[in-house]
Simulated scan of single mutants.
Amino acid sequence: MKNKSPFIKIYIILLIISIITLIVLSILGNKIRVGYLGEFKFDEYHIENTLKLNGFDIDETKKVFTIDNILNNDALTNYIFTNEAEFI
């Protein structure tokens, strides 16, 4: 009979910890998550700062994405996000 008392205490403590864990995980599972990556606005200022922070030569990179003296912002933004250039 002496051995049953510590086992019951340990069992009750583990049961309480598992119930608390399940409640916390349930609350976190129901939380609505928002992805902010799609809400980036890339204008001239943001493109230049991103290229400067990543160590790219701004003028050379813009020359690569310029067609008929028009900068292709979509291709340049895609290059910044994926680091893959798609040339048409």
Rank of each mutant, 00 (worst) to 15 (best):
I12D: 12
N30H: 00
L76S: 10
F40Q: 05
E48R: 09
I88Q: 13
D59M: 12
E48T: 12
I80C: 03
D74S: 15
G38N: 08
L28G: 00
F7R: 05
N78S: 13
I80F: 12
E48H: 11
G38M: 00
I67Q: 08
N49W: 02
T82S: 15
N69V: 09
L76I: 09
F7K: 06
I20E: 06
D43P: 02
D59S: 11
E60Q: 11
I20D: 06
L28C: 04
F65T: 05
G35D: 01
G29M: 04
Y79H: 04
E60L: 06
S18V: 13
F7Y: 07
E60K: 14
L51P: 03
I70W: 01
I20V: 07
K41E: 06
I10W: 00
T61K: 02
L76K: 10
E84T: 15
R33M: 03
T66H: 00
E44R: 13
Y45P: 12
K9V: 04
G35R: 02
M1T: 12
P6C: 05
N54E: 11
K41I: 08
E39T: 09
G55Q: 05
K9I: 11
N30I: 04
K62D: 07
V24Q: 01
N3W: 13
G29Q: 02
H46E: 14
K62W: 04
K62T: 04
E84N: 15
N78Y: 07
G35H: 03
